[in-house]
Amino acid sequence: MNILIDATNIISGGGVSHLTELLFAIDDDKLRRNEISKFIVVGIEPILNKLPNHNWLKKISIPKTKDSNFLKRFLWKKQNFKKIITDEEINLIFNPGGSYFGGKLPFVTMCRNMLVFETEEANRFGFSLYRLKFVLLRIFQSISFNKAEGTIFISKYAHDYISRNYNSINIKNWEVIHHGISDRFRNSVKYQRNIEHYTESNPYKILYVSILDVYKHHDKIAEAIVNLKKRDGFNIQFLVVGGKAGGFSNFEKIREGNEKIIKYLGKVPFEEIQNIYKEADLFVYGSTCENMPNILIEAMTSGLPICCSEKQPMPEFLNNAGKYFNVENVESIYECIKEVILDSEMRFNLATKSTTLSTKYSWDKCASETLQFLAKCGQSK
């Protein structure tokens, strides 16, 4: 079986990490077991350059003059895919980007972004082009799910939410296949000292890694941590790592005048982010819209205790290995973090549980399950 991977819409972020780690985890034995002969990946050159080189992996680059925006890439694909499919004798198309309308060949797609489907969360972006993009993507992905031979979900929550709320979407063949986690994040459980051990010059470091967008609620977490410092006198510091987006301005209002408590580190290259986890004592995660929260899995793997948003799918992954708060309520965040800070034994136990849970997620497992599902879908026609 020859499989074409349509990576034309994979430009940055989690899609790049997934595709790269997936292909690095595939070996000849996995291919042989699933009767797959080769993969052909079509995408933009900077992404293809990140992928491994194997005799079973062929890379076809979109010309630089055609890769600058979605419309140009779409038109190029429309003009060239039929020839690629014929020349490479393709049996199945895998579209990890989420939107593919198909032709005569069976295809497998993925569900990645729940902002496309969770209207209440998408409405946080107000009347904007960003909000319009979610509406259009919902239409495109709904068509894609209905036409696909198979759909990969990366959380059970995503499948259940879409099945429950979108009667027009009929997903006939699906599988939950979790992303893996790189071994560079794996760390032993961090020793947890009593809060009295920490000083102004050596504060207890609370870390949040995530883009500063409206559904990540950095402002509310920052306000709760400032309250912990001012009300209770804890020697703490809030470390924030992530690019600026729609939630940055509200976060900055809280940070203004509290720069000693709140330290914004900006974007850190993904290849170096594991070093940031090693500096922290506690991790907080305040998102209200995720599919599979990869950053949360990174924190679980890093040996840190975690205070987390109670919104699904976070509890699906963190289970009873974290303490939960209502991120819409500053007092709830405050009480949750305070409880954990005051109990070093609880912190250690939570970190031990979450680190153990994180061992379920590996790219080797993701690759094996993905190939099995692709082979099943390809053989069904």
Rank of each mutant, 00 (worst) to 15 (best):
Glu21Asn: 15
Gln79Ser: 12
Glu35Ser: 14
Lys50Gly: 08
Phe145Ala: 09
Ser37Asp: 11
Trp76Tyr: 15
Arg32Met: 12
Ile36Cys: 08
Leu51Glu: 03
Lys104Asn: 13
Asn49Thr: 04
Ser17Ile: 09
Lys82Val: 06
Ile44Tyr: 01
Glu118Phe: 05
Gly102Leu: 06
Lys78Leu: 13
Tyr100His: 03
Leu92Arg: 02
Met114Cys: 11
Lys38Asn: 14
Arg138Leu: 10
Ile60Cys: 07
Phe145Pro: 12
Pro46Phe: 02
Lys72Phe: 05
Tyr130Met: 13
Ser12Met: 05
Ser142Met: 10
Leu19Glu: 01
Leu105Pro: 10
Asn91Ala: 14
Phe117Gly: 15
Ile90Thr: 07
Ser68His: 09
Val135Cys: 07
Arg138Lys: 15
Cys111Tyr: 01
Gly126Phe: 09
Leu57Trp: 00
Gly43Ser: 10
Arg124Tyr: 13
Pro52Thr: 10
Lys58Ile: 11
Ser17Glu: 09
Trp76Asn: 09
Ser68Leu: 12
Leu57Glu: 00
Lys83Cys: 05
Ser144Leu: 01
Gly43Arg: 00
Ser68Arg: 02
Leu136Trp: 04
Pro106Tyr: 01
Leu75Asp: 10
Arg32Asn: 13
Thr20Ala: 05
Val16Ser: 03
Asn91Asp: 15
Ile139Ser: 05
Gly15Leu: 07
Leu71Gly: 10
Lys59Trp: 01
Met114Pro: 13
Leu75Arg: 14
Tyr100Phe: 11
Met114Glu: 02
Asn69Met: 13
Asn95Arg: 00
Leu132Pro: 06
Phe117Asp: 10
Leu22Ser: 08
Asn113Ala: 12
Trp56Glu: 12
Asp67Arg: 00
Glu120Tyr: 00
Lys59Asn: 06
Glu121Cys: 15
Gly103Lys: 01
Ile44Leu: 06
Leu75Lys: 15
Asn53Asp: 12
Leu105Tyr: 05
Val42Gly: 04
Asp28Asn: 14
Ile139Val: 14
Gly98Leu: 04
Leu105Phe: 08
Leu115Asn: 14
Lys133Glu: 13
Asn34Lys: 03
Glu118Ile: 15
Ser61Ala: 15
Asn49Met: 02
Leu137Tyr: 02
Leu22Ile: 09
Gln79Asn: 10
Lys78Phe: 09
Gly103Arg: 01
Glu118Pro: 12
Lys72Asp: 09
Asn34Trp: 04
Ile85Pro: 09
Ile85Asn: 06
Leu51Ile: 08
Glu121Lys: 14
Met114Arg: 01
Leu71Val: 15
Val135Met: 06
Thr119Ser: 13
Leu129Met: 12
Tyr130Glu: 12
Ile62Asn: 05
Gly126His: 06
Pro96Ile: 10
His18Ile: 12
Gly43Lys: 00
Ile44Asp: 05
Asn123Ser: 15
Ser12Lys: 03
Pro63Asn: 06
Lys64Glu: 15
Ser144Tyr: 00
Lys58Gln: 10
Phe24Leu: 08
Thr119Arg: 13
Glu45His: 01
Lys50Ala: 11
Thr20Asn: 05
